[in-house]
Amino acid sequence: MNIFRLVGDLSHLLAILLLLWKIWKTRSCAGVSGKSQIMFGLVYITRYLDLFTNFISIYNTTMKAIFIAVAIATIYLIYFKFKATYDSNHDTFRMEFLIVPVGGLAFLVNHDFTALEILWTFSIYLESVAILPQLFMISKTGEAETITSHYLFALGSYRALYIVNWVYRYYFEGFFDLIAIVAGCVQTILYCDFFYLYVTKVMHGKKLSLPA
């Protein structure tokens, strides 16, 4: 465990807790893409199946359990408890356009042709694009609430820190995982445009809105 991974994980945790807290506190999930949240839920569940097969550390097990629990809670709030506030008219990205190709790719490009490994690979690929419905929704409505922007910034920071973590691990541990690195870089690139808007607008106290 290096500092970049730890801060990245904490940033990841902060992001998902922030989103859950925002929905709970405002009793509304307006502006939040339920489809992105379903895909993140799928990401955690398919990746963390190893909770049942091998133990790594208390930290690892606890974080995995929290991620799965928070993801399920968020999906529950969006699709059940606060369903009336869910902005489905603007959440129109088709999930199958991501899940089907990503599933196919996981079958073709993986480290090992076993069920657990293919599901792990699927989750890595899916995570890299899971945020697209959320970004698509923001581009459709032309704006994002400030807390949603903070959520995206914390999530993007986690990805960027993981890249630094991989550089560190390559130099100091001689370890690298090409699947995780390529998918992680793709994912981080998707946040770049958002990062720019966040720094130029939200950090200066303005709401994130796209130019007309």
């Binding site: 990841h12 991620f67 973590n165 691990r169 370890f175 995780a180």
Partner: peptide
């Protein structure tokens, strides 16, 4: 099974 370092990442 052998220890796979990428699986200790979240």
């Amino acid at each position: 099974s052998k220890f796979d370092p990428s699986k200790d990442e979240l």
